[in-house]
Design a binder for these strands. Structure first.
Length: 344
DNA sequence: TATACGTGGGC
DNA sequence: TGCCCAAGTAT
C-alpha cells in the first residue's frame, strides 16, 4: 500500500490530466458561490444542479442579495430540487453572514460549520476551496473511493465505519494543495469510481485497490439496510374560483416546509360534499409513498374542513394565465406544479 | 443511533 | 418495474 504522499500524487495527477475543471462552480474562489454549489450538490447529481445553480446566482449574485430576499422567492428558486431544508438553512445562514459578519463569509472552519445546513464535510470543502485551508472532506464520492481502496467494510451510517473513513480521509489529505486534492477525490468518485460499473481500467488507484483485487467492487461501500416504505393517503382539495386556485403555505418544518400546496386532508376523513375526483397518483418519496387523490371542490368553506378566518395561513395563487402560475414567486413541490399544470 | 428530509437517473 | 441511491445535515 502506498504512503499518503504517493496516494495524493496519484490522485492529483489523475485530476490534472483527466479531471473535470469547467463545472459552473469551478474556477472561482468566491465563498458564496462555492457554498451554494456544495449545498445544492448534497444528495443531488451534478446535471440536476447546474440549471438551478445558474438561475439562483442570476437572481441572488451575492450573499447580501440572498439575505434580503423573501423566503417565498428563495423557495421558488429551489422548487423541484428537493430537500428544502437546504434552502431554508441557506437563507438563514445568509442572514447570519450579512448581520454578524458584515456580509463577509467566515474563513474559520469551525465558524463555517456553525452556520445552519453546513456539516463537517461541507465546511471542509468550503474552507479548502475558498480559503485554501487544509481541511478534509468526506462526501459520498470520497467514501466510495476510500472504502474500496482500503477495504473498509460496513455501512457508513455506523459510527465505527464513519470513523474509519474519516481517519483515512484525514490521513491522506495533504496540507498543501488541499483544494486540488479534494476536488480530485470528488471527481475520481463521481467519474471513475462510480457506484455501478466503475472504470477501474482508468483509475489511478487500481494497482493497489483492495476491492478490485478481492473482487469486492459490488460489496463496497457497504449498503444501508433497507426498511419498509410506508404509504400515506391524502386528498388534495382543488378549489378554483374566478380562475384562481387556493393554495396553502406549509409550516417551516416537515415535508415541503415553507412551500405552497393544495389544502390536504387524510383519506380517513369523509369526502367533502359536492366534490369531484380527479385522477389520482402516487408520489414516491425516499422514505414513504404518498397516494394523492385530488378533489375538485366548489367552496372550501362549505367543506367544513377549514375555517375561512385562517387567512394568515392561506393565499391565492393565480391560475387564469399560464404565465402567472409558472412565474408566481413562491415555492411549489414538484407534484403540485404538475397538478397545477394539468388544470390549465 | 435511527430517522426525516425530495427528486430523478440508472439498471 | 421496482429498487438503490446521488457532492449530507439536523434532530
Amino acid at each position: 500500500m502506498w504512503s499518503a504522499n504517493s496516494f495524493q500524487r496519484k490522485v492529483i495527477e489523475y485530476y490534472r490530466q483527466h479531471g473535470r475543471k469547467h463545472l459552473p462552480w469551478q474556477g472561482t474562489k468566491d465563498p458564496y458561490r462555492i457554498w451554494l454549489s456544495e449545498i445544492m450538490l448534497q444528495q443531488t447529481q451534478v446535471a440536476t444542479v447546474i440549471p438551478y445553480y445558474e438561475a439562483f446566482l442570476e437572481r441572488f449574485p451575492t450573499i447580501v442579495d440572498l439575505a434580503e430576499a423573501s423566503s417565498d422567492e428563495v423557495m421558488h428558486l429551489w422548487s423541484g430540487l428537493g430537500y428544502y431544508s437546504r434552502a431554508r438553512n441557506l437563507h438563514k445562514a445568509a442572514k447570519t453572514v450579512a448581520e454578524e459578519y458584515a456580509g463577509t463569509f467566515p474563513q474559520d472552519p469551525e465558524e463555517i460549520e456553525a452556520l445552519p445546513g453546513i456539516g463537517l464535510s461541507t465546511a471542509g470543502a468550503i474552507a479548502a476551496f475558498a480559503f485554501d485551508k487544509p481541511t478534509a472532506i468526506l462526501d459520498g464520492n470520497v467514501k466510495r473511493v476510500l472504502a474500496r481502496c482500503y477495504g473498509i467494510e460496513g455501512w457508513a451510517g455506523k459510527s465505527a465505519v464513519l470513523k474509519a473513513l474519516w481517519a483515512k480521509a484525514e490521513e491522506n489529505t495533504p496540507v498543501k494543495d488541499t483544494a486540488q486534492y479534494n476536488q480530485a477525490m470528488m471527481d475520481l468518485g463521481a467519474v471513475i469510481c462510480t457506484r455501478t460499473k466503475p472504470k477501474c481500467d482508468k483509475c489511478p488507484l487500481a494497482k493497489e485497490c483492495f476491492a478490485l483485487k478481492q473482487g469486492m467492487i459490488s460489496e463496497l461501500p457497504g449498503k444501508k439496510p433497507k426498511k419498509a416504505r410506508p404509504k400515506r393517503s391524502v386528498y388534495w382539495l382543488v378549489c378554483i374560483e374566478d380562475n384562481q386556485v387556493l393554495l396553502h403555505k406549509r409550516p417551516p418544518s416537515g415535508i415541503w416546509g415553507g412551500l405552497w400546496c393544495f389544502p390536504e386532508i387524510e383519506q380517513s376523513e369523509p369526502i367533502p360534499e359536492h366534490s369531484q375526483k380527479l385522477s389520482s397518483f402516487v408520489h414516491k418519496f425516499s422514505h414513504y409513498d404518498l397516494e394523492v387523490q385530488p378533489l375538485l371542490v366548489k367552496k372550501l368553506s362549505k367543506t367544513g374542513i377549514m375555517e375561512p378566518n385562517e387567512t394568515e395561513r392561506f393565499a391565492l395563487a393565480f391560475l387564469n394565465k399560464k404565465t402567472q402560475a409558472k412565474t408566481a414567486q413562491i415555492g411549489l413541490p414538484t407534484p403540485v406544479s404538475k397538478l397545477l399544470a394539468s388544470l390549465q
